[in-house]
């Protein structure tokens, strides 16, 4: 058969499309459960990591917080989860763990759901809040764990889809994330988050709502600043209620 005849080209492309479509979609369908399990475990690992660190201490022994360990122990530590609306009221029937921030961010503020995880570890309680925003090239996201005072940061985790290696991608490094520890998110009565500041002179001052930026990654740093403020300030009503109820119990 002539390789350049139209009918040959047509048959060839039909066969190619069918073969490729069958192979790819069957592969995607077959691997989907394992992939989503990986994603779920990673989410649990990230949430735990914000207040546990790299290794989990159980009965005096320390175990590395791998994805498998994280998914096994997640329910031992994360005791409560809330799906809040922008006024801080819990939405019934919404599974906070399944909320995808990428989709929530597209909605108007009044319709968004704000997930919050309440956890207890070594006798202290922590509140973990997921974050999501835009970096230079693509989305950046993360989790921040607050201590019981709902002001001091216990730990943060950041991740990104495609920031420049060596510049924006440095937000995933330990030194950058550690600089957030013990920073405060409140300034006076309002939530301002933590600013990633260029040419920061404050050293290790934990009271100024600012950390040192990564040199050369201004836009990613601004993205982190914006993401922290924009996400956290919507929890203010909930925080106030929480604080009030604590005072009442005392």
């Amino acid at each position: 058969m002539d390789r350049n005849s139209n009918s040959y080209i047509f048959i060839f492309s039909v066969i190619m499309v069918i073969v490729v479509a069958v192979v790819l979609s069957s592969l995607a369908t077959a691997l989907k459960p394992m992939q989503s399990e990986n994603v779920r475990q990673e989410k649990m690992q990230n949430i735990l990591k914000t207040f546990v660190g790299d290794s989990l201490k159980i009965d005096g022994k320390s175990i590395e917080l791998t994805r498998a360990v994280a998914s096994e122990k997640y329910n031992d530590y994360v005791l409560n989860q809330y799906a809040l609306d922008y006024k801080g009221a819990n939405k019934d029937g919404v599974d906070a763990f399944q909320v995808k921030l990428a989709e929530e961010l597209k909605k108007p503020l009044e319709e968004q759901t704000f997930p919050l995880y309440e956890a207890t570890y070594e006798g202290k309680s922590y509140y973990v809040i997921p974050l999501r925003g835009a970096g230079l090239w693509n989305a950046i996201w993360g989790y921040v764990a607050l201590e019981e005072d709902l002001n001091t940061i216990k730990g943060v985790i950041f991740d990104h889809a495609g920031e420049t290696a060596g510049l924006g991608a440095e937000i995933t490094t330990d030194w950058f994330q550690e600089s957030f520890v013990n920073e405060k998110i409140y300034q006076g009565q309002s939530i301002v988050g933590v600013e990633v500041k260029k040419g920061y002179q404050g050293g290790n001052d934990k009271g100024d709502n600012a950390v040192n930026a990564i040199s050369g990654a201004t836009i990613t740093g601004d993205g982190v600043t914006a993401m922290m403020e924009e996400r956290l300030k919507n929890y203010k009503d909930f925080f106030e209620q929480k604080k009030q109820s604590k005072v009442a119990i005392r």
Binding site: V23, L24, L27, A28, L31, M34, Q35, N38, E42, R67
Partner: peptide, 12 residues
């Protein structure tokens, strides 16, 4: 895509 999907499932 095949490589990517397989890696996502087995070597995350």
């Amino acid at each position: 895509i095949v490589v990517d999907q397989v890696l996502k499932a087995y070597l995350y």
